[in-house]
Design a protein around this nucleic acid. Structure first.
Lengths: 349, 349
DNA sequence: TTGTAAGCGTTATCAC
DNA sequence: GTGATAACGCTTACAA
């Protein structure tokens, strides 16, 4: 058999029409799946020609004509964070099934980069936008949403911005977790976090943590440690303070997210403090390595995949014309208890 | 001040032209940065109008006209793998600077999904493609490259496919690492990997490992353990075999990648085997948690960010018209020694 | 069941 | 310096 000679140029709808002996309209009907208005014979010829010419309709042209790009922009504050990857995966599974593609951006928590990406995705005419926001571009986001581009925020909400949001049910998760820590008999619990203000998920976690402790009359209501990663030494200073203050007490440290977890574990190790012998440990975000650090880390497993899945579903609903009021979807997390938060009684026995 | 009234529809180049009192051509010149053929006065009016109308040129229209989309497709075999994320970041940093955007896909190592994505990105008229391939779609990739779409493969090469590739210099990395293991005095080294055949990076790692051992007359030339994750129990069986066979010897386990690392560490822990007291450990891919597992894991840190960076640079060179012969770029890895591979002498002393 | 023709928002060519 | 006009590859009334 001889090789079918390769078409010199990318085939267009006109080429296929010509090859099949029909008009472009008919090909277009075929492409849109409108088979019932095409005769069987024609259909066969079209299929044949499409295959022979290796025809792939241009999404660009279609997008231009229909004023939609069949793509969704995704902007992450930190793509290295496994949280982001998992969300991405969930989003993709929905996206692909519906014939959309994802344009992925990473802002490194830089509002300036975020602004540029928003602008670029706007130019790209994305049909929707899923954002893990830096929370410092209210105006740009507001403009977009006024331009009728559906937006879903994940993890973090922005007050005053009328868009759908999807995240973890932090109140519920922290209520459960904090209760568990109390049950385990911890006398002091240090809550470590990057700057809390403006980041709704951190606010929720810290607030519920304090509420539960306050209700129990627990002394750690003031053990909130905020560090700004860019301020040299601040983190170490705070950790040292907590360690010194709680000397001799049955204590643990809680990390607001996975980045803080790693910072803490490294710092504890450097100080020669063992988990859980010298200090208990827990934090938000489960990971593949949480089970293998020491005797395992107790974590709050956020429903990351589900967050991505739901966010994309919501975007597509909006694109499909849903004009209902904006909603917040709070998905349930899972408390996974491991060796890093042993019961005080067990220790005593 | 009263709000500037929001344009009822997205502004087009025609709207801007009208507002500025010039032709579309002039606006287009402005957009392409051809300032020197525009008078200063006109330029000012254009800038003004663009701002007022919040005009964003449609990349779709531009793409259609120029037959390029200014986007690069990225297909990952496993986006959850930190390797992918880091590559993504490197690629993005280049991409963004040049005004391109990335369409990100994840195949979960499924050749069928890969095929669909290739087809979709083709339809999207991506200007180039960076692929971490499943290595089972030779034909589709060949078609693409024949269609003159630049492709760069990362990590894995596919024999017979004439495209650029970027990856780790596995020979050099494994030469160094294996030599180090020998220096540390390990009597047996188990090399654990998913199926090696067809995956060039695994082939290179295993081959060099064996070569170095053979040259040293070391008994572990046969300690290559291949497991197929989908075969229930195979992995555990192989691990048990190695453990039993090497009882009493100074031994270690080497993981071909980060997935295998986690599998092994979990399995060792479950068996109550300590690292490094009962068995030494090392593996390809450094991670944020490698320093905190036990007394730290010895790893080979692949230049992941650089791989992404280089791959994207290469794609853009190709797009810019480079027609040179296809090349392979082997970037240097870094051996990071930690507590999991102690010297035998140190132990004896 | 099929076709004609207009138009989506740009850029490229050519002319002034 | 500036502009008219014709594409680019598709979809969509509207006809037939």
């Amino acid at each position: 058999m001889n090789q079918p000679s390769r078409p010199p140029q990318k085939a267009t709808i006109a080429d296929v029409a010509k090859a099949a002996g029909v008009s472009k309209t008919t090909i277009s009907r075929y492409l849109s799946g409108d088979y019932k208005s095409i005769s069987e014979a024609t259909l066969q010829r079209i299929k044949q020609s499409v295959k022979e010419l290796r025809y792939r309709p241009s999404r660009l042209a279609r997008g231009l004509r229909q004023d939609r790009s069949y793509s969704i922009g995704m902007i992450f504050a930190d793509i290295s964070n496994p949280f982001s990857t998992s969300v991405l995966k969930g989003a993709e599974d929905v996206c692909t099934k519906q014939g959309y593609s994802m344009i992925v951006c990473n802002t490194d928590n830089d509002p300036e980069k975020e602004k540029n990406y928003i602008s670029m995705l706007h130019a790209q005419r994305v049909d929707g936008l899923i954002i893990h926001p830096t929370c410092q571009n209210l105006e740009n986001l507001r403009e977009l949403s006024e331009d009728q581009i559906p937006i879903v925020l994940i993890d973090r909400r922005i007050p005053g911005l009328k868009v759908d949001t999807v995240g973890t049910d932090n109140d519920k998760a922290m209520t459960e977790a904090t209760g568990y820590f109390l049950d385990q008999g911890f006398e002091r619990i240090g809550f470590f976090s990057q700057p809390i203000q403006h980041v709704s998920s951190r606010i929720e976690r810290a607030r519920t943590f304090v509420q539960i402790l306050a209700a129990a009359g627990h002394p750690s209501v003031d053990d909130i440690y905020e560090y700004e990663p860019r301020i040299q030494g601040q983190f170490d200073e705070q950790l040292d303070r907590f360690i010194a203050e709680t000397q001799g007490q049955y204590r643990m440290i809680f990390a607001v997210n996975v980045v803080t977890q790693l910072k803490l574990i490294n710092a504890l190790q450097k100080r020669g403090l063992r988990i859980p012998e010298d200090v208990g440990f827990a934090g938000v975000d489960d990971s593949e390595w949480a089970p293998v650090v020491g005797s395992g880390l107790t974590t709050i497993a956020q429903p990351t995949y589900e967050i991505g899945y739901k966010a994309m579903e919501r975007i597509l609903e909006r694109i499909a014309g849903d004009n209902g009021p904006q909603q917040h979807f709070a998905l349930s997390a899972n408390l996974i208890t491991r060796g890093s938060t042993p019961s005080r009684n067990a220790k005593i026995l």
